[in-house]
Amino acid sequence: MKPKVAFFDFAGCEGCQLAVLNCEDVLLDILGLVDIVEFREAISETAPRFDVAFIEGSIHREEDVERLRGIRARSTYLVALGACACIGNVQARSNFIAPAENFKRVYGEVDRNQAQTDPEFWPLWAHTRVRAVKEIVPVDFELRGCPMVPAEFVHLVKALVSGSIPHFPANAVCVECKANENECAFDRGETCMGQITYGGCGAICVTNGYRCDGCRGVLPHANLAAHRQLLREKGLSDALIQNRYRLFCSAEPLGQEIRR
């Protein structure tokens, strides 16, 4: 029996599901190994139970919480797919701004004032915080990154169909920078979050000449005090450091810690 696999999207850009579809060289092979029963990006079908549910997107509204709990109850394994589901991603920056203020920034004051009188928008003001999936239901595996990494997705599928457990080492991005013989971003005068961020991405950003902004989340053993001190020594203001940490990790302890 091929495992039944379903994809669900919450608040996110659906880019991770697209990244799955973009695994063109292996997608047909994967479809030979698993049975996809729900996938809004590709097909439409519903099933009562799944072996693996992939959750894309962060969780905002109470109705999303209920929907997520329902999916968890119907799934043997639940996988957080991508940075939104794993760590809240960029939208969690709104955790530090009142919803009404946020609405004003995006749509202007006139629209905001109008929306505040419209009952259709009221649920929006009730939403208080962007949350990662793990804050609401137990997550079995995390496919980190913005977007998720196809090689890790393939590794997870292989492990699940062969009865083993996928393994994602909790090592820094630096490990892959060294394997790629990258010049360290700091040696280019950049400031980088690679030392405190989960690797597994192949250090793709640094390899291509950029820096790591930490989209895969903060390592459990991260030496945050040392990292902050290093960024200060490199001339970053505390406000800039806060921005840097909050970019992807606002829902994570790192993003929140700086607020204290």
């Binding site: 090592n171 820094a172 630096c174 490990v175 060294k178 360290c184 690679g194 040392a226």
Partner: peptide, 13 residues
């Protein structure tokens, strides 16, 4: 190790 990130760079190079 006060400032160490346990990133493994020293080993890998």
């Amino acid at each position: 190790v006060q400032q160490c990130f346990s990133c493994g760079s020293c080993n890998l190079v």
